[in-house]
Design a protein around this nucleic acid. Structure first.
Lengths: 184, 184
DNA sequence: GTCTATATTCCGATAGAC
DNA sequence: GTCTATCGGAATATAGAC
């Protein structure tokens, strides 16, 4: 059973990834959770506090995610990572970084810092996966693993945003192309 | 000499791509252009009217851009296209679609429709460039031209967002990788 | 076409009772 | 920890003079 505080973070996350940080308000949360506006302020005194909690939540979930799949091969780990975005796209939302990056100058310093750490953690993890997979001969690509990690992540990252506009839902074609690009 | 109306659109565009549609207000524009808040409402009665004008402006500029480079080879046209995003990244902003997609549900129907048309126009143009270049033997990639256009556009599209967070400004590595991926 | 002044709505936030 | 009630500020928008 989730606590009210946890429910607020979960819903706040959904709202941010649905219409953005600046577009949602406490009045989107209160009726949905059947609590009062003031109750949300009890748990998160300022909107920024809630925003930071949402980013923290993603950091924790990502760590749990990567640890849960360490036994998989590099190819399987990459596929599992791509699946995360598949689910985001099915939800008709965008990823947290994609939601916040365009609003960056309107966010406070602490939120920006947490976001930066989260992005770096994600990129480092993906870079390491690609590097290890290449050493084993499972992946084959030119250039640095870092650049390739950026290529892969930008593909799925932007896909969820663009598919939202075009209405196109064929994630499979992108996934196949991504995997094909690193297995020449 | 630009009219006040044109200046408002230009600044509105910059503001949207700096901090998002919902984060900017008419009070960001009035002092900067040394006109009154009410003057902006004279030209654009509602904020949505301004938003639509910004999207229209991008559509017109994109058409002018593609027509200005029809004499170039497909490779050169692609490079010119990538340069557009290079400039956006140097400005520390994001592209219009990247700014609006995460806020989509908070935008009115007319703005969403204009945005959809703009995205489809861009994708169709890039798809055609890749298809023609492949027929001539200048490009070499597997899969459909459409999917490849999506791969290219997502690479630069998301790069400008991510580089904003990481502070990384090495656009060259991405450009090289993009061109390399379609010239095997 | 731009101004002053103001209406109105919404949102983030707080005080104080239970 | 949640409630009622409310403050204060910001943002969209309008009325009417120049």
């Amino acid at each position: 059973m989730a606590t009210t505080k946890e429910k607020i973070v979960t819903l706040g996350d959904k709202l941010i990834r649905d219409k953005g940080y600046n577009a949602f308000s406490y009045y989107d949360i209160a009726p949905a959770l059947k609590v009062n506006n003031a109750a949300i302020h009890y748990h998160f005194p300022t909107k920024t506090d809630l925003g930071e909690a949402v980013v923290d939540c993603h950091s924790e979930k990502f760590t749990a995610f990567t640890q849960s799949i360490t036994a998989q091969s590099e190819i399987e780990q990459l596929k599992s990572f791509l699946e995360l975005f598949h689910r985001i796209s099915d939800d008709n939302r965008v990823c947290l970084v994609g939601a916040l990056a365009p609003e960056l100058p309107s966010l406070n310093k602490s939120m920006r810092q947490k976001l930066t750490t989260f992005v770096k953690t994600t990129l480092d993890w993906l870079t390491a996966i690609l590097e290890r997979g290449r050493k084993k001969g499972d992946f084959n690509f030119s250039g640095t693993a870092r650049t390739r990690a950026l290529m892969v992540i930008t593909n799925i990252f932007a896909w969820v945003q663009i598919s939202r506009i075009t209405g196109e839902k064929d994630f499979q074609a992108i996934k196949t192309a991504i995997l094909n690009d690193i297995s020449r």
